[in-house]
Design a protein around this nucleic acid. Structure first.
Lengths: 194, 194
DNA sequence: ACAACAATACGGTCCAGACGGTATAGTTCA
DNA sequence: TGAACTATACCGTCTGGACCGTATTGTTGT
């Protein structure tokens, strides 16, 4: 699917990132084509050259950021594999990677949230690519060598943190956040019940 | 707190519930004053009498549904108190109530979600009442007699389920959902520390 | 008891502005 | 030469909200 060449920041990517920034800074309601074009230093015609409609722009945001998160997840997973060289007690590796990806890069989670909100407002179906990915992640979580309910609980807790951050609903900060992360990692580390 | 006269469903409440239904059925983007008025069988002038602006309407939704959820939570908490008559091993009571309230009434959670989305789109500050409540809940969760990180993890998992339901991001269904609930309740049930 | 008045709860109409999208004509660079 | 834009003008639609009217139900002064 990805037809990008690779490397330097293209205008297309700049437009997508600008769109995210607008959502995060001014709210979903202020995401207009004119605003994105202006803030990107691109004419409206230029924007519409890359994204023929607003839906296309938001679909682009969802796709771009979903794949970005997925790339980060795979990277985290490879780091795990190095720590546990042989395929020995590697149960919970995917869940740990998922948790770390969610907790680590608040910036990136904020960008995904922006795309998420923009999509829901405009047309919920635009979330389908993310939904598909999430189902895939859930399959890998189910098949990660942990007790199935435990694995899902850990995923939900990570998502819950994302949720709390997204809407600023009493998200754990600082010390408490670190303790929560440590606890989740511990449970995902050795697959035995407390 | 409640300054309403009491009893019968007022036009005001009907408007609030209609607004929720529109959001849930047609999406946040379709929440317009005209649509709410029409679907409520009320003229636009009538709607504007009760809620002078769209912001006021959405603020009303947030307040109304937040208090509704809180009422359900307190009810759940009282049921817990009956089960554990004396103040014996009642650790985790609040957390259990929170979990049950979140899992039990999907309908109600859907309505809160509608208000949440409407608020975020229009003006994130409209969420402040809910944020305040959530901070209060978090305080009670911290002070529920469980290990602090554990309690917060359980809350986050419950919120994560809400999140998954809200955006339809691979939410656990049926059997799996029941097992997740059971596990969370079990962890919130015996609050022993080492 | 009755007029005068006010508050509540709407119905109906209208409009300025914003937004998405189209169209068109010109420009820069590989 | 064509892809990747810039610049600008324009249109149809929708929406929030202002404005005005009106019926019903108290309330108050006398």
């Amino acid at each position: 699917m990805s037809d990008m060449k690779s490397g330097m920041t293209t205008t297309r990517e700049r437009l997508l990132e600008t769109a995210c920034q607008i959502v995060r800074a001014e709210g979903v309601g202020r995401l207009t084509l004119d605003a994105v074009a202006r803030a990107s230093g691109v004419s409206k015609g230029g924007l519409l050259y890359h994204f023929p409609s607003k839906k296309d722009l938001i679909a682009g945001m969802v796709h771009y950021l979903t794949e970005r998160f997925n790339d980060g997840l795979e990277r985290e997973l490879r780091k795990e594999s190095e720590d546990y060289p042989a395929g020995s007690s590697a149960n919970g590796r995917f869940v740990r990677s998922y948790i770390r990806s969610t907790f680590a890069d608040a910036e990136q989670m904020g960008e995904i949230s922006a795309a998420l909100l923009a999509a829901v407002v405009t047309d919920p179906q635009l979330l389908n690519p993310l939904r598909e990915r999430q189902r895939e992640w859930q399959r890998r979580i189910d098949d990660d060598g942990l007790a199935p309910a435990l694995a899902t609980v850990l995923r939900l807790a990570a998502d819950g943190l994302w949720f709390a951050d997204l809407f600023d609903l009493a998200p754990p900060k600082g010390e408490q956040r670190a303790r929560v992360l440590a606890l989740l990692e511990r449970w995902a580390g050795g697959g035995q019940k407390p």
